[in-house]
Simulated scan of single mutants.
Amino acid sequence: MADGYLTTHILDTANGCPAAGVDIVLYRLDGETRTELARATTNGDGRTDAPLIARGALQCGSYELEFAIGAYFAGKGIALTQPFLEVVPIRFGIDDAAAHYHVPLLASPFGYSTYRGS
């Protein structure tokens, strides 16, 4: 049985710290159809308290994470009439259901990057 799982974390690169209190939604994609799988909010370490997909439940396919980064930076006092980044979507694929997939987000109010972490 495959025991892969999915995790994430967010780093606030503008302030040099983990991004606590960011709402995250995970979707499974089938063409343009999105099915919500999980919701979580980051803790003080910028991580979710549990994997977004638990060990043994990971399936190959396409996914999307949505990070509500605009609300996070507004809460940090970044007062913009219209935030440049409101929600950061990251679409990614899983091709090994036995692996650990880690999708980190490094964000500022005006840019972000991601990679496949470990």
Rank of each mutant, 00 (worst) to 15 (best):
N43E: 15
R34K: 14
L65G: 02
T48G: 12
A54R: 11
L26K: 02
R39C: 14
V25M: 06
R55W: 12
G4A: 08
A38F: 15
L6C: 06
A38H: 13
V22Q: 02
G56R: 02
M1P: 03
R28Q: 15
G61F: 15
H9F: 05
F73R: 00
R55H: 12
L52S: 00
M1T: 12
L11C: 08
A14K: 09
A38Q: 12
R39A: 14
T42D: 07
G44L: 13
N15F: 15
C60R: 13
G21H: 06
G46P: 04
E32C: 08
D12G: 08
P51F: 11
T35I: 11
E36F: 11
N15M: 08
F67C: 05
L58T: 00
G21M: 11
D30H: 07
A19C: 07
A40D: 07
G16C: 10
D12E: 09
N43I: 10
T7V: 14
R47F: 08
Y72H: 05
I10H: 01
H9T: 00
A57F: 05
L29R: 12
A14E: 15
F67Q: 02
T8D: 03
F73E: 01
T7C: 05
T41M: 06
A2W: 04
A19Y: 09
E64D: 11
M1N: 13
G16I: 11
I69F: 03
N43G: 15
G44T: 09
I53Q: 02
S62M: 14
G46F: 06
D3F: 13
L6S: 03
A57G: 00
A71H: 04
G61R: 10
Q59M: 15
L11Q: 10
E36M: 13
D45H: 09
Y27M: 06
G4V: 03
G4T: 01
R28N: 15
A38E: 14
G44R: 11
A14T: 10
I10S: 01
L26F: 01
A54T: 07
L11D: 08
L58Q: 01
D3E: 05
T42C: 13
R34S: 13
L26W: 03
L65V: 10
G70K: 01
A74Q: 13
I53Y: 04
R28P: 10
C17K: 14
N43S: 12
L6A: 06
F67T: 02
G31N: 05
F73A: 06
T13C: 13
A74H: 10
A54H: 12
D30M: 08
Y72K: 03
C17D: 09
T41I: 10
L65T: 07
A54Y: 10
L58M: 01
E66T: 07
D23H: 12
V22H: 03
Q59A: 12
F67A: 02
A71M: 04
A2D: 05
T7H: 04
P18K: 06
C17N: 10
L65E: 07
I24H: 00
R28I: 09
L11P: 00
H9K: 05
V25G: 04
G75V: 10
I10K: 02
A14N: 07
S62K: 12
E32A: 11
G75R: 08
T8V: 05
R39D: 14
I69G: 02
D3I: 08
C17S: 13
